[in-house]
Structure formats: C-alpha cells, structure tokens
C-alpha cells in the first residue's frame, strides 16, 4: 500500500469535482473491497475521496417507485422493513453476501462497484488483462474454479462476485448516476458489462459518474421468491453459483417469472429465455428442469469450473422448487 491523500466530501457535486480534477483520485465508501485492493497494490490511488458522508442513505417509497440511496449500508437495506415487505428477494440476496461485519460497512453503490475476486486479478505478479491490459488472462488456462461459464472472452473469464446485484438485475432495477454532464439513469442489466476486448472496464459508468441511488419499480413479487447460493462454506464465501427467483403466482400458474444467476458471468446474469418458457405454466419439476436446460444454453466450462455446468441447472431447479413451495 502506498501513501495517499484523504479528502472527505459532503455533497455529490464536490464528490464529482474531486474526481474529475484528479485522474489519480478515487472514491471510497465502505472500503470493504478497495482497501484490500490497495493493500495488494492492485490499485494505488494517490487520493481517496470519502463519500460516506454524502446525503444518499435514504430508503424511501414514492407513488410509483422505490428508491435506495447509494450510501445506504448493505445491512440497513437487508433489515429494512419496507425492503423486506416489498422486495424480499433483495433482502435475501444481501444476507447471503459476505459476513455481518462486512455488510455493516459496505454500501449499495460500493457493492455494485466491487471488483472481481479472480485470484489472478489480486496477485500483481500474475498476468491479468483486467488489472493490466495486454498481460494475458491467468485464469483461462490456470486455476478457474470460480470462473465464468457465460459471456466470457479469451481476454477475461472473471465473474462479478455480488449477491445483491443478482437480485437487482432480477428485479429490473435502475441505477441513478450523476456526473459532469448531469444525471442519467441506467437499466441495471446495462450497468455491468461483459469483458469482450475491454475486461478492464467492469461497467458502463463514465469517468466522474457517481451512483446516487438504485430505483426499483412496483412489483408483485412478495411471496414466491428465493435466493439460493451454493458456496464452499456456509458463510463468508463467494457464490460458485447462485440463483435468484421471483415469481408471481396466479391461480396455480406462474403469471410472471424473474430469474437471475450469480457466480457465472462478468455481470449478474439474467435468464430471460427460461423466464419466458416458465411464464404461464404450472410449477413442476419437469418444467423447471426444461427451463434450466434453456438457461444453460451457451454455457462453457474452462476446466476447473466444468462442474458449474451440472451445478447451474440443478441450482436453478432447486431454487424454483423452493420459491414455488410457499403457495
């Protein structure tokens, strides 16, 4: 870790200005990922701009939308009564992530901005196109147990590690950002990107754009939801595969279905084909298995992670069974 300057800001405008005027400055919120990255020399900002005091912590419901401030803590969102009532899937996903101590520090915006946990990204003596473009992908022919089975490129097979983001993409959230050019809204599924030729770019934010809030539309998914996270130990482990399910049951049929997956791609993965297949059908294991098969189309293993090709569909089926078991 190198020495750095530290600045605390209290308005989004000051936060944006501080970054735009200094290419070596970086925002810090909960720091649960950034501090590790700095300790390991993966990133070495010369200036940290602390945004935890920005007035962006509010969780509120208005007439047609639900808004969660970017600086709201993961634990506060998970435990929020409104969230638990209106968007129980989000609460479940948050509680499956990290540990209580980390959730007490981590913010919603920071969770979205966390970097991959690919070990080649974290060891600065290793090749990694995400950390050092052009140095090669260490994981492609290396140890890739945690890695992507969807949407990877030969430049990068890393996955996005968040649980919260899997719920947000499943729930059709929108990201509100403010930057030098003003405010804009990004559909959640367009926020993170696939690695392609530019694995160093995790998301579609422009330099100087600050996440201020996440918005959720009104939804019927209050009861038949489930977040199933398969991991190597019961807590404080990233997902090998996770599945988010939100279903609106009407008269014994699946009226609306939302399916998301984590631990499988460079971005939180949405399973629209499977959703369409399931919509209008009555829940049953054969139907779920068929949907899982559709969901796994195009999946590709890289060696150590081949087991995800079996684990993925089985996890989808189990999550669907659990989500529909409470009628």
């Amino acid at each position: 870790m190198i020495n750095f300057d530290y600045l605390r800001v209290t308005t989004p405008k000051a936060a944006v200005d501080a970054i735009v005027t200094n290419r070596n400055a970086q925002w810090i919120a909960g720091g649960t990922n950034l501090i590790d990255l700095m300790k390991k020399g993966v990133v070495e900002p010369q200036k940290l701009v602390d945004i935890t005091n920005l007035p962006l912590k509010e969780i509120k419901k208005t007439s047609n939308k639900f808004s969660i401030g970017a600086m709201a803590l993961n634990s506060d969102v998970a435990d929020n009564e409104l969230v638990q009532k209106e968007y129980p899937l989000l609460s479940l996903a948050l509680k499956a992530g990290a540990s209580q101590q980390l959730r007490n520090m981590a913010t919603v915006g920071g969770n979205m901005m966390q970097r991959t946990r690919c070990p080649y990204f974290y060891n600065i003596d290793m090749p990694c196109n995400k950390r050092q473009p052009g140095s090669g992908c260490g994981a492609l022919k290396g140890f890739n147990r945690m890695h992507a089975i969807f949407g990877a490129s030969d430049k990068c097979i890393a996955v996005h590690p968040s649980d919260m983001c899997v719920a947000l993409v499943t729930l059709d959230a929108t990201v509100v950002v403010t930057g030098p050019k003003g405010e804009r809204r990004i559909p959640f599924q367009d926020f993170h990107r696939l690695p392609g030729e530019l694995p160093q770019k995790d998301n579609t934010l422009e330099r100087g754009e600050l996440i201020t809030a996440v918005e959720l539309p009104d939804q019927p998914f209050k009861k038949n939801v489930h977040y199933l996270k398969i991991r190597d130990r019961s807590s404080y482990a990233f997902a090998l595969v996770s599945v988010a399910v939100a279903i609106d049951m009407q008269n014994g049929k699946m009226n609306q279905v939302r399916l998301g997956m984590g631990g499988v791609a460079h971005k939180p993965w949405r399973l629209k084909e499977a959703e369409n297949f399931l919509t209008g059908k009555a829940p049953s294991e054969p139907v779920f298995r068929e949907a899982a098969k559709l969901a796994m189309r195009g999946a590709k293993g890289y060696g150590h992670n081949n087991f995800k090709l079996k684990l993925g569909p089985n996890t989808i089926v189990e999550a669907l069974i659990k989500a529909t078991a409470t009628s």
Partner: peptide, 10 residues
Amino acid sequence: ADYHVPVNAD
C-alpha cells in the same frame, strides 16, 4: 477469503 477454513455455521 480464498483459502477456506470452517466458519461457525459449518
């Protein structure tokens, strides 16, 4: 984070 030892829940 990557070298696992059991947590209480295990």
